[in-house]
Amino acid sequence: MKIFAVLAALTLPLALVACGGGDDVTNVSVQPPGTPSGINVDGEGIVTIEPDLATLNLGVEVRAASADEALVLANGAFDNLSQVLTDQGVAEEDIQTTGISIQPEYNFDGDPPTIIGFIASNTVNVMVRDLDSTGDVIDGVTSAAGDATRINQITFEREDDAEAISQARDLAVEDARQKAESLADGAGIALGDLVSITDVSFSEPPPTPFNLEAAASSAGDDGRVATPVSPGTLEVRVSVAAVYDIAD
């Protein structure tokens, strides 16, 4: 008489164990409910694109004895900066304020600390659509605002990457199929129809930062250089998960 026992574990498939009169034991794996049957594969597609948009985070920062004086000086420096942006062909809708601040500056040597002045700043994001003019924009705003200039970051991106995403998705699907065919060939079975496919993840290329400190370190004795700007390239990645039938 054969005795059947079902062994269960939280992290393992159910196992059906058949015990006979001898020493032979047969283990039969049972897939958990909902597990897709067939050949399960993933695929990835990568497309390299060139950026066509630079975003500068820049502004002005000044110090003065009073808050009112600091604000007046900051507004004047920012007006000069804004005029350069206009002269460089930057559209008004491509300039967005990201921060305006007036804060006291303290001397912490005493107890209690004393206010010794005020710091006023005005920061904006500027989209430069003509990448060739990015260096000129940086040089222009620095000359216009002088020591009040603050250039915090520059990043590069692709404004319309829909075509690149579509291409990467096609490559990911093809990659998944090739993997499924390879597995089927290796196992000596025939690949069946595609049962399901899921877009697992889409990785939009993050803005590529530019090292402003490296550019500044190449300045001459007068501190003035033609700012070098290298947009580089971006990668669009798409991943898919696919399930194929095993043909009869």
Rank of each mutant, 00 (worst) to 15 (best):
G232V: 06
E61N: 06
Q167C: 00
D111S: 13
E159K: 15
R150M: 08
L14D: 04
N211Q: 14
D222T: 10
S182K: 07
V240Q: 04
A15M: 11
V173G: 03
T123E: 07
I246W: 00
D222W: 11
Q96W: 11
D136S: 14
T149K: 04
V84A: 11
A145P: 12
V30R: 00
C19L: 13
S201Q: 13
I154Q: 06
F202V: 14
L212S: 10
S182M: 07
T233W: 07
D24R: 11
Q103F: 05
F210W: 15
P32V: 04
T227P: 00
E181N: 10
G223R: 02
R169A: 09
G192F: 00
S201I: 07
G220C: 05
A18H: 10
T48H: 07
A144R: 03
S133Y: 06
S101I: 06
M1T: 12
A15D: 05
A77T: 02
E105N: 12
A145C: 13
V25N: 00
T114V: 15
A5F: 05
A168F: 04
I189Q: 09
G186Y: 10
F202E: 12
V126P: 04
D199N: 14
N27Y: 10
A120L: 12
V126N: 02
T208V: 12
A91M: 14
E213Q: 15
Y244N: 02
Q88D: 10
D222R: 08
G43R: 00
A15T: 12
F156L: 10
T55H: 06
A215Y: 01
A168N: 02
I138D: 00
A54R: 03
I102E: 04
V243E: 02
V238S: 01
A226W: 01
D248S: 01
V137C: 05
R177G: 02
S230T: 14
Q153V: 01
A65R: 13
I100Y: 03
S239H: 01
R237I: 10
Q153C: 01
A168M: 05
T98C: 09
D87I: 14
S29H: 11
P209E: 15
D132H: 00
D23K: 05
G45Y: 01
A180P: 04
F108T: 14
A172T: 02
A176K: 01
S82R: 09
Q153P: 02
D221F: 11
E157F: 15
S203G: 12
G76T: 09
E235W: 04
